[in-house]
Design a protein around this nucleic acid. Structure first.
Lengths: 338, 338
DNA sequence: TTGTAGGCGTTATCAT
DNA sequence: ATGATAACGCCTACAA
């Protein structure tokens, strides 16, 4: 049976009270440096591990932070988590994972049943048709620190960390234009998502900036999968006016596009430009390699977590912040004319 | 402020004692069906959420299970986690994530500081040069249920869930042989890992079975990255006898091999066979597409978690089990002669 | 600066 | 079948 050391043990051995030990351990105010030193020393020696159940119960922190997100099986999200994990680990926090499978029902269920008593704060990236708006707001109202990342809820008043979707999209389209493409379609994400709108806006503004026509039929919304990308290209291909390039909302869809084009015998690059968004490692592996806007996924994770921890420490006394991180255009073969 | 409903509230309203409520909620023995019904009904009505900190403290379960693994940024592990997550969610357990970055120091630190008081059980896949053997054994000795998956510690007496590495490797090599390749090299994983050994054994036995020579220089050990695969091929290429095919321990390395071969102008498939292990989605995207042995990643996750939950429920009263799940050979272009 | 006492929400042990 | 009551380990007034 686990014979765990508690602050009681330390108190007994040192012949002081548990409150003093408790204070010393959390280096709270008002504790004699010598006493603290003794406590810390003994704690290390006995390999004392705080019981977070107890401290959580008693009103201290639980040292747990939750992450709610649609998936972990893609490059972007797994990198974000890795970034989160890194800072959480460094600060002694545990990560509790909630995966919604991009299902609004599941997300709602997760948020509604979220045990905020066991969590010091929550990081969230919402699903495609999130309907949990109210529930998130409720959690926030209850006083739980929340930071949204990547897929944020524009309407909710909370801290947010995102990449610069608008400018990334603008630059992607600009790049296509400069490579000589002029009939540029956009294979977009689910219409409800904030970043879908931002990338779409960047696309539209870039077209306008370069005096290119906006063809409504060239804007196709669907999901994020490779299969969606393939299907979307079909749609474009069947239209009466065919584009000569595509800006896809993410790499996975762009890859679907490339695969379809190859199947049709189109030379991607020379004859048809394709650019994505993310910089998934697949982009460098597919042939022709995929131009893209690299997202600072790891950094999004790091900064989200740092921000959340600030909120947690400053309890109720923090400023809501919105952080936007720049992406980087990476030109590869799929936009190279020759 | 969070005004959480507690069993006390329910007890007061129903005019019964907290112990009865507690029992009713956990549908323990000895509680009047009517009473239980009332309690359950009111609990739902008030949206009662158990405080796991409290139940953990009091000796009940914490409803948390830990996962310790090297990475989450690859297809295999992220699928495993997804599988784990699915059953944990269904059974009302939370997942606490610990990523070791495949670093033995980090792993040791994680395991040593693991707060088993906050965890009902732990799932683990060890890192490449794990030195945490003793610590895992200690955790197990203390009574914490542990199930290893994929990267298991052969020497530790605990439940394990793995894919059939030996047979998968055997079939991969057999497939190369049947395609007419005869000078087959093996680009292996870190020598210390159990499954590296199993896949190597499958490779060796397949060579023997088909009367092919074992060339020690054709067995190269290194890490799991694409870069490792590229470097390994270089090594093979510089050797005095060149192989005509490679069985790589995983897809990522196999992809490195293909990329290197393409760079050298070798026609992968017709002139040089390559087969991997995993069935990472990248395998289908690279050109030529990569033959591989598909691993039941999701299933490994599911079964690991189910097994762990059984151990948790049967507390101390369970049988250690080892489960081996079959893989499936997937033939693609990289082993097609014509 | 330190100690005392009460309580956090739940479960377990005894009674009844 | 149900109820008191005492933990569980920690934190936070309040008192000293």
């Amino acid at each position: 049976m686990p014979e765990h050391i508690t602050i009681k043990d330390i108190a007994r051995i040192l012949n002081i009270s548990v409150s003093t030990v408790s204070r010393a351990l959390r280096d709270a105010y008002d504790v004699n440096p010598e006493t603290r030193e003794k406590v810390l020393h003994l704690a290390k020696e006995l390999d004392y591990k705080p019981n977070f159940n107890a401290s959580g119960l008693a009103g201290g922190g639980t040292r747990n932070i939750g992450i709610i997100l649609p998936f972990i099986t893609n490059y972007y999200f797994s990198m974000v988590i890795t970034g989160i994990q890194e800072v959480a680990y460094a600060k002694g926090y545990n990560i509790v994972l909630y995966v919604t499978n991009d299902s609004p029902e599941r997300e709602m269920d997760v948020v509604r049943n979220l045990n905020t008593q066991n969590l010091d704060g929550v990081l969230v990236s919402v699903c495609s048709d999130s309907a949990a708006n109210n529930y998130f707001e409720q959690i926030i109202a209850e006083g739980t620190p929340v930071v949204f990342f990547d897929r944020v809820l524009g309407s909710v008043d909370a801290s947010k960390v995102v990449q610069d979707d608008y400018n990334g999209a603008f630059e992607a389209v600009e790049h296509l234009v400069k490579q000589g493409f002029s009939r540029i379609a956009h294979i977009a994400g689910p219409a409800g998502l904030d970043f879908t709108k931002h990338r779409l806006a960047g696309y539209l503004d870039a077209l306008e900036r370069y005096g290119l026509p906006v063809e409504p039929a060239w804007i196709v919304h669907s999901g994020f999968s490779q299969a969606d990308g393939e299907a979307d290209l079909e749609v474009l291909w069947e239209g009466k006016e065919r584009p000569d390039a595509v800006f896809a909302v993410n790499d996975r869809k762009a890859i679907g596009v490339i695969l379809q084009l190859k199947k049709r015998g189109i030379r991607v690059g020379p004859d048809f430009g394709v650019i994505g968004f993310t910089d998934d490692p697949m982009s460098a592996i597919i042939s022709p390699s995929l131009s893209t806007v690299a997202e600072p996924a790891y950094e999004v994770g790091k900064q989200s977590c740092e921000l959340l921890l600030q909120h947690i420490v400053r309890k109720n006394n923090f400023q809501v912040r919105e952080i936007t991180l720049p992406g980087v255009l990476i030109a590869r073969e799929s936009t190279r004319r020759s």
